[in-house]
Design a protein around this nucleic acid. Structure first.
Lengths: 130, 130
DNA sequence: GGTAGTGTATTAGTCGCATCATACACTTAG
DNA sequence: CTAAGTGTATGATGCGACTAATACACTACC
């Protein structure tokens, strides 16, 4: 597991987002065991307490559950799991729209530029063009 | 002048962005006088030093120029001014794309959601083709 | 010249984050 | 039982970004 940390956002938040993405994509299934705090800290080369903070955050968001002294597990609440991806996407869009609002950008210009950036990566260009 | 501050980003950055947008939209013309630090601080109800930091940032980005003990002025470098809008849009897109990458979102879903959010506001749906 | 208004500089205080070091209670494996 | 591995809790420290308070130097204007 490798997370490319940036310096902008807090590390513990980036850890949370990382796991959120894995859940959203099904790489982490419902009920699956999470790595231990210490193990993950070692692997990511960060402090165990930072990992703990990330896990606590994930618990508050009901993404994981923890019984006493047992490895944490991904929630089995399918309802929660299904909402993760939507939330990630919607939040990103909200931030984005907020930042370009008032800038008088046409939808076409927007779509064009996004396609150019996003398409380079992992875009499955099924459909839109048709 | 009213800026609706949020708690996410530093105030001085939000001030910079605010003026960037005004320049990008031509509400602030080349060579035009900027408000004084203290005046602006009073109006926005923030600390003069916060305004100063914003102005210093704008100077480093060559958006404004300042002669000793005279009100700052918007740069007369048209080249710089023309680039502002592009930079604002491109940076927003870069951040956005970065955040949804790996989420396996189709272009259609993206465009659809953006339209719904963005369209509500100030979208002029004049298409590029025209 | 004196006053008010510029921009500028310096210093101090606050806050969030990350880290380090320990310690505790419990479970599991041997 | 013992030892190693869980999650959890606490306090101290350091650092950097941001904001605040104050003082300084200069200009414009009457």
């Amino acid at each position: 597991m490798i997370i490319q940390f940036n310096t902008r956002a807090p590390v513990y938040i980036q850890v949370v987002d990382h796991f959120k993405k894995k859940m959203a994509l099904g790489e982490l299934q419902a009920g699956e065991e999470m790595p231990s705090r210490r193990e993950l800290a070692t692997e990511l080369k960060i402090n165990p307490n930072t990992v703990q903070k990330a896990f606590k955050e994930m618990e508050e968001q009901q993404l994981i559950t923890t019984e006493r002294n047992r490895p944490s597990r991904v929630t089995t609440d399918e309802h929660v799991l299904k909402r993760i991806r939507t939330e990630l996407v919607d939040e990103a869009i909200a931030v984005f729209v907020e930042s370009i609002q008032e800038l008088d950008v046409t939808m076409d210009e927007l779509v064009d530029k996004i396609k150019r950036q996003y398409g380079e990566g992992n875009l499955n260009d099924r459909s839109t063009g048709s």
